[in-house]
Amino acid sequence: MSISLVRNSYGKSRVRLVKVRRAEGQHELTDIEVDIELEGDFDDAYTLGDNCKVLPTDTMKNTVYALAKSHPVEPIEDFGVVLAEHFLGKAHTRRARITIAEKVWSRIDAGGSPHRHAFLRAAGERRIAEISAAAGELAIVSGIADLLVLKTTGSAFSGFPCDEYTTLKEASDRILSTLMVARWRTATRDEAPTRTWESARRALLETFADQHSLSVQHTIHALGTAVLAACPAVDEVSLSLPNKHCLLVDLSPFGLSNDNEIFVPVDEPHGLIHATMKRGG
């Protein structure tokens, strides 16, 4: 029997790193998680058990810490490129993929002003960057993940087709909640990725809050349009919005009315809506 090893890769996942920049008078904090994946001439490790070309994944972990000491880790896109180019320079490696997720911390407000060295984390929200490097090729995707938002009105869902299994009632005023994931690409390398990220995040939040949503599909199109309008460097944006349902509770068995006030949040199952939008498409 003939067997071919079609594709392989290996690396190190969930390398946690916190870096503190102790500038006089104010500290800066970055909290990231790094995934490293290498492709290359590693077939013999799989087929023969020959490890002579395999850089240990423990070495990859140590490399993250060492390079974080000698290089800025902000913006994470730039640090991802530093890592990708380092590993691409190793013998037998043909492609290096780096994924970085940054936990978003903000300063605690103390005495009416931001504290110089105390921070508060924004739930599960993360800034993300994905870097892929090969000979003569560099691709960067930036984004935001797990941005949990909710609005108590300004959302509807009606006019949908019904069949013999449909039980959902039309809603003219409902709670809309979702855990946003947005990824974007730029036509050329972005010289100000942090400014782009901040502009995209602000566009997502403001559009979600202000738009009168006729469906999650309607909202996701508005969000993508807003990001492209707010971020001239962005050429393409992809969004994923799971619908985090809040279902109206039937209080009639207790002789009570429910005037759109009492809900039960339901995580599963949930709707999942995707869309990709491109400038000039």
Rank of each mutant, 00 (worst) to 15 (best):
N8V: 06
S13T: 12
L17Y: 09
K19I: 01
R22A: 02
R22C: 03
A23C: 03
E24V: 08
Q26P: 05
E28Q: 08
T30D: 05
T30V: 10
T30C: 09
I32M: 10
T47S: 15
L48T: 12
N51H: 01
N51G: 00
N51K: 00
T59G: 10
T59D: 11
K61P: 10
T63I: 05
T63M: 01
Y65T: 00
A66I: 13
K69H: 13
S70E: 15
P72G: 07
V73E: 02
E74T: 10
D78Y: 13
F79Y: 14
V81M: 09
V81R: 05
H86W: 11
H86Y: 14
L88F: 07
G89W: 04
K90A: 07
K90C: 11
K90N: 05
A91M: 08
R95G: 00
T99F: 07
T99W: 09
G111E: 08
G111C: 13
G112P: 09
G112E: 09
P114W: 03
P114C: 03
F119I: 09
F119M: 06
L120Q: 12
G124R: 08
R126H: 05
R127M: 11
L138Y: 04
A139V: 10
I140F: 00
V141R: 11
G143Q: 04
L148M: 15
L150R: 11
K151M: 02
T153N: 13
S155L: 01
A156F: 04
F157H: 10
F160S: 05
F160K: 11
P161C: 08
D163G: 03
Y165F: 13
A171E: 15
S172K: 15
S172C: 13
R174N: 13
I175Q: 03
L176R: 02
L176E: 02
R183D: 12
A187I: 10
D190N: 14
D190F: 03
E191L: 13
T194M: 14
T196N: 07
S199N: 12
S199C: 09
A203E: 09
A203S: 04
S215R: 01
H221T: 12
L223I: 03
T225N: 15
A229C: 08
A229P: 13
C231G: 04
A233P: 01
V234Q: 06
E236S: 15
V237P: 02
V237T: 02
L239N: 06
K244A: 14
L247M: 14
L251Y: 08
S252T: 09
P253M: 00
G255R: 04
L256I: 00
S257N: 06
N258C: 05
D259L: 05
D259A: 04
I262H: 05
P265S: 06
P269S: 07
L272S: 13
T276A: 15
M277H: 10
G280M: 06
G281Y: 07
